[in-house]
């Protein structure tokens, strides 16, 4: 059993050992550079890079000034010219500072350059609410990056998936946005030894059932699992899919499930407009319309920033109770 934060560090370690071209950049990833305590006094504020600098040195584990644009730009340039860069943006919210490098540069190189180049960059971003970290340190940004052609987007929810998907991301020849939910860093799970890769675009079946399909990612998977357990006691069977990657998307698994259950719940930790939830709804409305036996239910945050106060953040977030209520509503729907 290993904590997800340790899985991240160990997977990067394994990939750096395996391939000399893998480098890492980010703020405070060594932690303590230029301080009396010295390098690795801390080892990254999330504990996801401890020991890597000691092992691989300053040329491969690059602690940077607070300069998100230059971090992503530098990672992009290195990845265009032979390296495989793993860039860390300390909080996903800071994507705003480096958006051009991600959106206009990294995401477009391969296409704009006529397919003659690759940019094997991984941008790791801790995201999500649950820490009362207020509007600028709590957001889920997957909808925004999923909407950008030229990026692959990964959102693991378990320790094993974190390993398989991160190794895959580092070996992938295209840009990958790797989203790590802050509230899951301390979660433990079994992790396969040795080389372990999970191909992108394959959902994980968490629970099986014939009544309701539930789609979730990241921290929402655990919430949905709790809801599914309770619903099972009430005789409602949930087909819960952890989508694992939002781009590529496992459309087949989603459609197969909805065709069986006829009811769809989408659990998403971000505001509801132009979101991942609306995207999934559109997919099902277009391609599985005739299977639907009830309106699609979206359990999302409201159309607001993530508020600070405990009560407000709790109200903002989806919860197992809200998922159960939505399932009951879908089950009781009768065509008028």
């Amino acid at each position: 059993m290993k904590m997800i934060r340790d899985v991240i560090r160990d997977t990067i370690d394994e990939e750096m050992a395996r391939d000399d071209s893998v480098i890492m950049l980010g703020e405070d990833i060594v932690g303590g550079m230029g301080s009396p305590g010295g390098p690795e006094a801390i080892g990254g504020i999330w504990g996801t890079s401890g020991g890597l600098w000691a092992k691989y040195g300053s040329d491969r584990v690059i602690d940077t000034p607070i300069s998100e644009s230059a971090i992503i730009g530098a990672a992009a340039g290195a990845s265009l010219t032979g390296k495989r860069a793993i860039a860390e943006i300390m909080f996903a919210d800071f994507i705003g500072v480096c958006m051009d490098q991600i959106w206009n540069q990294v995401a477009k190189f391969r296409y704009m350059f006529g397919g003659k180049t690759k940019c094997p960059i991984v941008i790791r971003m801790p995201y999500g609410a649950g820490y009362n970290a207020a509007p600028q340190h709590s957001q889920s940004i997957h909808a925004m990056v999923t909407a950008m052609p030229g990026l692959k987007v990964v959102m693991p929810s378990t320790a094993a998936d974190t390993k398989g998907l991160l190794a895959q991301a580092i070996r992938d020849d295209d840009p990958v946005i790797f989203l790590e939910h802050k509230a899951l860093y301390g979660v433990k799970g079994e992790v396969p030894d040795g080389d372990y890769l999970i191909p992108f675009g394959h959902a994980r079946q968490v629970t099986q059932g014939d009544d309701v399909t539930i789609l979730a990612t990241g921290m929402m998977v655990g919430f949905a699992e709790k809801a599914a357990a309770q619903l099972a006691q009430d005789g409602i069977g949930c087909d819960l899919l952890d989508l694992r990657t939002t781009s590529p998307l496992d459309e087949e698994a989603i459609l197969d499930s909805v065709e069986r259950t006829g009811r769809l719940l989408i659990v998403d930790e971000s505001p509801p407009r132009c979101s991942f939830a609306t995207d999934l709804s559109a997919l099902v409305a277009q391609k599985a319309f005739s299977s639907l036996r009830a309106p699609i239910e979206m359990i999302t945050g409201p159309h607001s920033p993530v508020p600070f106060a405990r009560e407000l953040e709790t109200a903002y977030l989806p919860s197992p109770e809200k998922i159960v209520a939505a399932a009951v509503k879908a089950m009781s729907y009768r065509r008028g």
């Binding site: 703020e27 405070d28 932690g31 550079m33 230029g34 305590g37 006094a41 602690d63 000034p65």
Partner: peptide, 9 residues
Amino acid sequence: SEHTGESYA
């Protein structure tokens, strides 16, 4: 800045 010394950054 956080844990990093000014002389480094």
